[in-house]
Each structure stands twice: as structure tokens, then as C-alpha cells.
Design a protein around this nucleic acid. Structure first.
Lengths: 226, 226
DNA sequence: CCCCATGTTCACAGGATTTTAACAGTAAAA
DNA sequence: TTTTACTGTTAAAATCCTGTGAACATGGGG
């Protein structure tokens, strides 16, 4: 079961968060400030840390810096009362993996938490995958198209890997963006088309570019025929 | 049909909300405070609860705490007066799934309510469905008619999916428009006929176009025979 | 500091899909 | 039978979506 550490100095809010996430079937541990939380991280090894930006003793930012200094890579979700864009930047730069502006609907929190945990859970996908003449080995990062080896950049690789792991299954644009570019991707999602384009061009080397099919209005599928 | 419980101590507002949502085709039950509402939750099993934050006897916040303490997970929409400071944490502390700041436009309320209800309903809809020679798989988006595969656009797909999920059940025009085109569809509802036409034409490929039957003055059904 | 590789954004053409509108057809009501 | 209310069919118009080349941004290495 997934374990979440929540750090917030407001007891009511803490209670609320705890209850909400416990309903969701998560194991919840709490702390009221960063100082108190630090030892819990190493003893409890949570899968996700939710923390407030503003806290006494040790605020969210400082906590994150300390955490990262220790080389800890646990996923973190930052809560912030301010909604300025600069905070988003700050929050992310400080090492938070996502952030949420207060006030937010609990359902939104739950959605984010699940999205993040899903991402964490993703087992070390190290198994080679293959489909329709394309094979990809995550450990060596080698990709063969009709026997020929092709070179892919990281993003291209991740995208192809995702498609190959779900052959014949239509993946929605948002789903792909979430998986490859990270949950909560804001930018112009035309990147996806651009990368599909790159991939097709490279797959053309083995005449397999038609394997990536567009499903207009939905997303893309890796499948033969049609 | 979706059932909504509205809890508010202001009779005028209550009346207004009731009328608005009833007009939207929802079943509405009301209570003027939390104390009164609590038993209704277990007897009526509403799909959604709309409640005011400030109420006599038992306010919204307390009501929600009680509700959650009982382990009840019904969706809740909190109404609140505008107040800069309180709003910061309201969403969170209330434990509501969504909130709306007064004053609000009825259309906004309606939009939220429908969005929430759709969320409640729409969870498990990636199971393949089949009826009378037609099969549809939401994950691959493949549709087979008498064994032959046909290509559908998003709208066609959604419409067919809806019909297949309710075989032999007459779906009203408005109901279909709500599901497929969204609750806020005002356009010329001739689109529905047009799309039924498209679908029938494509189903004709497997000689199953007569499966979509017109129920004059009401809507359409997916059923064999006649 | 500049260059290069990678990643992201922009603009826009060409197509596919969706909507509108007009009218023909058909069942029910008068 | 006539009238009316709905429904089906088409085609054109409006809109939306995707692919593409090129510009722009970033960061690491030389």
C-alpha cells in the first residue's frame, strides 16, 4: 500500500488531508513541520511527501533543499497559498515534483496524488519490448527497426517505449503527455505531434512509420494494418 | 436519474436551486440544515450533496465532518460567501469535492453539478461492450460489425458506445445529447439525427443498421427485431 | 563563450470532422 | 384525407485537428 507523508502546521488542514487520503486507501503519516518530518522520511520511506510552503521551524522550501541534499528523490507535492507564476517556478526549481495552489478541491488533490503515485509505481520498466518489427531494449537503449538500429533522443525513446508497451491500445494525447512529459504538463501540447513526427521519420528507415497511427481527436496507437 | 440533496437555510436560495436543478432533469431533495439532512443522506442515497457553509443548527463544515466520519463518500459541492481570507482554506478544510463562491451564476452551478455527476458516473467505462453483432472496445477503439471492422470518428464512437451500453433501453434525445455532446449543448439538435444517420450508414456495412431504432417523439434504442 | 544537440514553440496549410440548413419523407393527429 | 410534428438525407459551411518546417530556448562540452 502506498505511504504518504503530510507536513503541515495547520492541524485542521492536516486532519482533513489525512482523512481524505486515508479514504483513498493510502497509509498516511503526518508531521507539523519540516524539522519533525526529516527523520520520518528515512524511517518510514514514504512514496510521496505532501508539504506546505509556509511552515514554522522549517518551511517547505528549506525542507526540500535538505531532502535533496541528502540525495533523497522521494516525490513531493508542494502546497502553496500564493498563486503567482513565480511560485510555480520556485516550487519546481526547489525540487518539488508538483504543486497545488490553495484553495483547491480535495478531489483535485486526490487526482494529483494518484497521478504521482502511479508514476512512482511504474516498475523499473527494464523489460525489452517488441512489436511489429520494432524492438526496444530499455537497458541498452537500443532500438531496432526491421533489424536496423536507429538512434533516438531521450524523449523520442520514452515516447516509443510507451507506445510499444501498449500495442493496439489507443493512448490519448493527454495520457501520453502525462507519461512522457510528466503529469501536469502545461505547455503547448503540439510537442507531441512534433515528436510523433520525429519518430515516424526515424521509423521510416525500416519502413515501419505507418505503425504509429493517428486516431483523430483522441491520440495515437501503435498497430499494424489499416 | 441523478439525485441531488441541497442543504441551505435560505428558503429563497433553496427554492431557486431546486428549480434550477429540477429544470435540468435532476431529482432534487432539500433540507434547511445539516441536522435535518443527515438522515436523508442514508435514506435517499443522493449522488451529490450541495450545501451552504453557513447554516444554523449544523453548519456545512460540521455536516461534512460528520458525513465523512460515517465513511460516506458522496460528492459534495460547498457554497460560500465571498471572503478573501476564508476562501484560502475553505476548499481544503471543508472536505468538499468542489466549492462555489457566492454569488454565482446559475449556469455555473449547473455546469459544476453536471461535471461532478459525470465524474461520479463515468468511472468504469473502459470495458468492452457488445450487442447483436456489434462489439466495441474502448481501449483499442475497435468496432466490429458482423465481424468486419469499421472506422468511427470520436462523436460517432461515443454515440455508439452510449447506445451499446444501454441495449434495449430507449434513450431520450436530450439524454443522448447530454451524454455525447455535453450538458451545455444549445445548438441545433438536428446533429443527433445526422449522426444517427452516419452510424446507420456505417453499420450497414455489416447489415446491422436496423439495430438502431427510432422511437418517434422520444429518442432511439439499440435493439434487435421489431 | 560559442557551438551543438535536444527540446519547445509558432504559424499555417490541408484535411477531417462537426454543425448548420434546407428540404424530403413518414408517422401520428385532427 | 389533410395537417402537423418529427425524422432522415444531403450538401455546404464552419470548425477543429494534425503534420510540418523553421524559429527559438536551453544547457552541456569543447
Amino acid at each position: 500500500m502506498d505511504k504518504v507523508l503530510i507536513i503541515d502546521d495547520d492541524p485542521k488542514l492536516l486532519k482533513m488531508l489525512e482523512r481524505t487520503l486515508t479514504y483513498e486507501g493510502l497509509t498516511v503519516i503526518t508531521a507539523s513541520n519540516g524539522l519533525e518530518a526529516l527523520p520520518l522520511v528515512s524511517s518510514e520511506l514514504p512514496d510521496l511527501i505532501i508539504l506546505d510552503w509556509l511552515m514554522p521551524k522549517m518551511d517547505g522550501l528549506t525542507f526540500l533543499e535538505k531532502l535533496r541534499d541528502f540525495g533523497n528523490k522521494t516525490m513531493t507535492l508542494m502546497l502553496t497559498a500564493r498563486d503567482a507564476v513565480e511560485n510555480r517556478v520556485l516550487g519546481l526549481e526547489s525540487g518539488a515534483d508538483d504543486y497545488l495552489v490553495k484553495p483547491f478541491a480535495p478531489s483535485e488533490l486526490v487526482a494529483r496524488v494518484h497521478a504521482m503515485l502511479r508514476r512512482v509505481q511504474k516498475e523499473p520498466e527494464n523489460q525489452p519490448v517488441a512489436y511489429g518489427g520494432i524492438s526496444l531494449d530499455p537497458t541498452t537503449r537500443e532500438v531496432l527497426v526491421s533489424g536496423k538500429q536507429i538512434d533516438l533522443t531521450v524523449t523520442e525513446f520514452d515516447l516509443l517505449h510507451l507506445l510499444l508497451r501498449h500495442p493496439r491500445q489507443v493512448l490519448e494525447r493527454q495520457q501520453i503527455l502525462n507519461e512522457v512529459w510528466g503529469y501536469d504538463f502545461y505547455g503547448n501540447d503540439n510537442v507531441l505531434e512534433v515528436y510523433i513526427g520525429y519518430l515516424r521519420k526515424k521509423l521510416r528507415k525500416g519502413d515501419l512509420d505507418q505503425l504509429i497511427q493517428t486516431v483523430r481527436g483522441v491520440g495515437y496507437v501503435m498497430k499494424e494494418g489499416k
